[in-house]
Amino acid sequence: MNFDFSLVTDSIPKMLVGVGLTFQLMFLSAIIGLVLAVVLLLMRLSGKWYLGWPAQVFIYVFRGTPILVQIFIIYYGLPQFEAVRDSIFWPILREPFGSAVLALSLNTGAYVSEILRGGVLGVDRGVLEAAKALGLSARQKFIYITAPIATRLAIPAYSNDFISLMKATSLASTITLMDMTGIARTIVAKTFAPYEIFISLAIIYMIFTFIIQKAFGRFERYMSKYVNP
């Protein structure tokens, strides 16, 4: 068993074919998840129990179970019910891609909601009192004061979650999707050269992690431009 470099150079272009699918999974789930997270956050901040409780249960369930189990429940599990197969959502749930995006979105939504809540709770009381003293309404206070500050505070944690999401897209390969990991697994099944293929793929993922970290670092600096150093 030698480390075969020609195999590495052969397989990297093949695996990069799957990068499009990895990115689609990542960005679609990130956007849907973020919308969901904001909705969950507003439900919890509303102070109404019939909104707050369901949000909390949702977050608890999705943070307390493995993402792989969630993917399997949605992709393999839901078609057990005829009602699902007859519903208008069936064209989405029938496809592994739709199921993967749904599972990843619900999962990341639960995590991001907690991150955003941490940001909101981290907003300085004094600033909120100042806003009140200036006569801002509750809604104005939230839009002009709480939201921008909470966003800035939440960026470091959000960037970690975004990286987790990127890594979680690799689980889509377990429901037959041919993302980068899916392609790598088929190549390994054919060549039985796990070191060459999986290490190359790991390096590709690490590069993406690095880029995401740098991008969020820039965004954080941009959002902090009014903060005194």
Partner: peptide, 17 residues
């Protein structure tokens, strides 16, 4: 920086060969 599943696959199949 690497997906968990990739580490598991690499460790298992790598050690096997």
């Amino acid at each position: 920086g690497t997906p968990e599943i990739l580490v598991i696959l690499l460790l298992y199949f790598g050690s096997a060969i």
